[in-house]
Amino acid sequence: MTDPSPVFTADNLRKSFSTPRGPVKAVDGISLELAPSDFVALHGPSGCGKSTLLLIAGALLSPDEGTIRIDDADPYALDANGRAAFRAANVGFVFQQFHLIPFLDVLDNVLAPQLSGREDRGALRTRALELLEKFNLSHRLNHVPSALSVGEQQRVALARALLKSPRLLLADEPTGNLDEENARVIMDHLSEFAKNRGAVLMVTHDPAARASAKRSLHLEAGRITA
């Protein structure tokens, strides 16, 4: 870790949800730091708080206690619109279900982050085409998601997450729906993103995926245990 300023820090995060059977402590005192080029895999039993931690890290769910900083800024100090703009500029998301927009073709799906505000459209388009070329999707530009294989779909989702060159990439079981070969391709791309001074926080059950990460954290009942 040559860079002294981390991409992401979490300080003593706590988040509980009230349920009919009393409050559930989803995240219970987690501190974490991701330096540039860091690639962290989170694993643990179902319900241990992995997704909750990811949502908090992605400026989508404010913690009850503790703070996070992304590139030295606290997104929860901003109002809703400010936080949305912050997410657009700094965070990329990849999900197990891809969450592509079904009626947009591949290129438009990758360019969907343009909807978050005015930007240099030409530059983003060039970037989108580069990413799709790199992800071997150039021949699919005008296909809708339903016409793609799952591996292709996840690559489109990844391209969308990387469009605005975020510092932090959050992935929740990105290979959960993929076969071995497609999973490997995605992990390669995540590794490459990390190598280029990005930081990746990834939830995964897949031991092979975990092997691609630089380090691996085990969560148990909302706490990091290893």
Binding site: A89, I101, P113, L115, R160, A161
Partner: peptide
């Protein structure tokens, strides 16, 4: 709903 979720996650404002 899923589409709205992902759009909001990637920074699209609620007004949009």
């Amino acid at each position: 709903i899923p589409e709205i979720g992902i759009l909001r996650a990637i920074g699209v404002k609620s007004r949009t």
